[in-house]
Design a protein around this nucleic acid. Structure first.
Lengths: 218, 218, 218, 218
DNA sequence: AATGAATGAGGGTTCATTCAT
DNA sequence: CATGAATGAACCCTCATTCAT
């Protein structure tokens, strides 16, 4: 027969509960806070103080889970990058998908159809790009991600070209162009949201694909 | 046969000659040094110390000519932006140019054909974009520049559409796409120089224009 | 017979023990150090470096507990002022004290009978007065304190005048004069300690009160 | 027949006339500017830049005429002090003046009857007093001046005591008190101009003298 | 494991002083 | 003599990191 579940020890007024939580959860909490901080204040104004307060945690904890600020930033970039790649691979992993046209459409949707979160992610993305020239680590992470996206996109385009018997189409060039276009549109959405909205950006990207693969895009 | 002209007197460490120069020259000197520093170390690692040393000047001088670091950075962005705009306007200013095809070609050349300098400029460009989300001043300068480029490009495209009697072409959409593509290509050139060179980038951009205006691009 | 107890182990330079102390204690420690610095080096030569070193603390701590140097200085003035006012009110708070003569004597004692501390306090006092013309905050704090002292002294003098049936005595004028006299004596003690000592200063102040209220001063 | 008085040399647009002026005039110009700066901004905010601009002169000139800022400040204090002493001596120099009562009255007038200038002087005075504790030079200058004033005032009071056959009057003590009172009143006028005006201050000082020497003050 | 007060290197900025013009 | 651009030490302050609790 179970006894009362209420703890026998009297609850202290406790100024702040010393929460013990699993390692991975704390890490994620901190990375999420870092993303929000970068999006809101920029990379240079993102301090450990700000991040830990945003996460509702103490200052020391960040150095406990990540060894340094530098490491936290690197891990954050890695996280954003991984997340994006996973989304992309979810669409492009299948080398012979049931419908190439549907896959193309999914790709477009994925790259230009996120809500607030995506906006934060874009801000983070470009914040790191801005520093990438000077920080080899960032550059490595970013370009590894870009290369994967490029390879997968190129493979899809090759399949489409073959399927649609498009002549004189260069899959690599089209992939380079398409991905650059997406990057450029993201940048515009971020920097000049008044001049461009998601719908128009999507229309622009779709037009690009339509020119390239008229039989596969409505 | 005369030997090397190197002076035989040993170079003194010589305390550093105090040189008085006109205001505008000093400002330019400092802006140039700032550009080099941002390109080499990133925006966040660009300190006054670094900039003034790079310029071969003393620490205090930057605050003498620009009131603050913030102001120096803003002026540097303004400078890069102005320079780019002037180049662009040099090509697009004429509303009814002798040859639309030649103008298009010039535009392409201008946007993708600079040497080392341009690479530095790109680094600066994206460094500021990365912080633009958090600094209204940067955003204002950047988006003002972007808008001008967009307007002028759109006008050119309209003239070409009308001249070529292209049907169903939307000048605005094409301009948005073209400029986004250029931005995206720049970013790739900067972040992944190993995967993309200027020639290929140009080919990609040319392909875009060719799809849009086949009669105006070789 | 035991020899000197000096330890034989050589004192290590020992990096300086990091000591965690409650907030209020640290604040007081810093304010005390500030007072000593101002007294020893003057307001303008009082740097954060000097203050924190005097307190035996690190440089950053002052900005942790006070937000800025300006704030530390203001709080220091407020502290000195409050301390003085509390001493004064301890004597003058009682509106109908058992003995007016005793109160008068206590006032005199209080205002001219402190040791080293008081000398430091005087230095602080005048250091702030010197800058008060240019810093409204200082002026506000100082004049609020002065006004309180004036009001309380005037009230005491009024009671004495009424008690002693002194004719043609103006309590306000006498209070103004008495307090100015005290200020002036303090200044002399500070600036020309060789020409005036505390005993003589007290004699001068007592003479003033004796002229005013002969029945209440021995 | 006189020819035209207009100079034959053509007036240059002259960005700033390079004025060559006698040494003493430049020195005075700078000292006056220093006084105005100290009165307006406080001692700590008085920079060479500010002083020279206020004087309408160039930065270098101050170091040409005074060797350093320290020296300029010292000379400024010396100037204010000398000026005051000269005024005082003009009244008190005569060891056996025609009328002691008149001399007393003049003294009062002199010490409490200046216009704007005097207010500036007072600010300067106390600015230096504030730093005097830490700067031996200031202390020396100030106390030398004070001592002279004390000696002369004491001499006058002695003459008056002797003339008025005041019994039990201590000239030295009265002089110390009177001068301290004046200092204190000045301080009040400076720090709390709302609570005390010149007329009331004068009444207070006169009351002091009246108590001491009833036969010599109306 | 968790906290946040404490540390101190290094940032931006000011300003007395120097010196080429 | 006179100017003010140039210098650099020294200021205040921030913030990544440490560590007593």
């Amino acid at each position: 027969m179970p006894t009362s579940q209420t703890p026998t020890t009297i609850e202290q007024p406790e100024k702040k509960r010393r929460q013990v939580r699993p390692r991975s959860e704390r890490r994620q909490q901190l990375i999420d806070a870092t993303i929000r901080c970068i999006a809101a204040h920029g990379l240079s104004a993102t301090t450990m103080q700000l991040v830990t307060r945003e996460a509702g945690l103490s200052l020391g904890i960040a150095n406990l889970h990540f060894r340094s600020k530098e490491n936290l930033l690197t891990e954050t970039l890695r996280h954003v990058t991984r997340e994006y790649n996973e989304g992309l691979l979810g669409i492009l992993a299948n080398d012979s998908p049931p419908s190439l046209a549907a896959t193309l459409e999914q790709l477009l949707d994925f790259q230009l159809s996120r809500g607030v979160t995506q906006r934060q992610k874009m801000a983070v993305w470009f914040a790191y790009y801005g520093e990438a020239g000077a920080r080899p680590v960032y550059q490595t992470i970013c370009s590894a991600s870009d290369r994967l996206a490029a390879r997968k996109t190129e493979a899809l385009f090759e399949a489409i070209i073959s399927d649609g018997q498009y002549r004189d189409r260069d899959a690599r060039q089209l992939a380079t162009g398409y991905l650059a276009l997406i990057d450029g549109l993201w940048l515009s959405l971020l920097v000049a949201p008044r001049d461009l909205n998601k719908a128009r950006a999507k229309a622009v990207a779709r037009a690009y694909l339509q020119q390239a693969f008229p039989k596969h895009i409505a």
